[in-house]
């Protein structure tokens, strides 16, 4: 890979300042960025590691829900969110493999917004709020298609706040090689309705399945989804599954997630 300078600031302010330099890029867990740089598909001149910022780490329960610092690793979320939000903890505990979970972070995942990543489903499915150094962004506004988010130049994710639903579950069907989600569905039942977020399936990245949300809001049972159809239009077709196959998975996994959330 190309060479670069490396800095590891201790505060958000210092990180933001460092990132204002030409060619600077934030490095969170690096589990995606590092392989990309090895392939020379990314060549920053300055890497700003966010893993040394204490104020961006940790899981804590507050009045507005569960707050997770952006630099919190998947392993930490899997462990520390378990008592508060088991479905989110389980999602985090199923990302990649243990070594990846020890480095990869929630902030890195949602800043990258890989269309097959797990966290976007959890964040969107929970109706969470993405907190940045500048503002708070509702999940519905944050994810803007494959590898695309509402983040602006110089803006970094500092945390995510999750309202905790009554019931929730994430069911992921692995892409057999990468172990990313070939399709993953996050279902969350709140007092005022149900949210269903799907990752891995769509050419437009993570999305909410509105019909299922409606059906499940009136009857939170797997059978409520039975009569629905998922269009294969705009679904991803690749070596591992056709659009029709992914459309099928969306429905099957939604049913399973509802069953698991009971």
């Amino acid at each position: 890979m190309h060479n670069f300078d490396f800095v590891k600031p201790a505060t958000i302010a210092d990180a933001v300042k460092a990132l204002s330099a030409e060619g600077a890029q934030a490095l969170s867990g690096g589990q995606t960025l590092t392989p990309t740089m090895k392939q020379r598909l990314a060549a920053p001149s300055l890497l700003v590691s966010l893993t040394g910022i204490a104020e961006m780490k940790g899981v804590c329960m507050g009045d507005d829900g569960l707050s997770v610092g952006a630099a919190t690793t998947h392993a930490t979320v899997a462990k520390e969110a378990a008592a508060h939000y088991p479905a989110l903890a389980a999602l985090a505990g199923g990302i990649g493999d243990p070594a990846v979970r020890n480095r990869g972070t929630i902030g890195g995942s949602i800043a990258n917004n890989d269309p097959a990543a797990c966290y976007p489903a959890g964040v969107l499915g929970s109706g969470a709020t993405v907190v940045t150094n500048r503002r708070r962004i509702a999940a519905d506004d944050y994810f803007q298609g494959m590898f695309s988010t509402a983040l602006e130049e110089g803006e970094i994710v500092t945390g995510v706040t999750f309202p905790v639903p009554e019931k929730a579950a994430y069911v992921k069907f692995n892409q057999p090689a990468s172990r990313f989600a070939l399709t993953g569905v996050f279902v969350a039942k709140f007092k005022d309705g149900v949210r269903v977020a799907v990752t891995g399936a769509s050419n437009n990245g993570v999305f909410r399945w509105a019909e299922a949300e409606k059906a499940l809001s009136s009857n939170f049972a797997a059978s409520a989804v039975e009569g629905l159809t998922v269009s294969a239009d705009d679904m991803i077709g690749d070596l591992h599954g056709t659009p029709a196959y992914r459309a099928n998975l969306v429905k099957v996994l939604t049913k399973r997630a509802v069953a698991a959330a009971q």
Binding site: F6, K8, L27, G30, Q31, T34, P35, L47, S49, T51, P98, A99, V100, N102, R103
Partner: peptide, 11 residues
């Protein structure tokens, strides 16, 4: 446990 090929020495 971490994958040392995916972590910079500086980190």
């Amino acid at each position: 446990a971490v994958k040392s090929c995916t972590m910079f020495a500086a980190d």
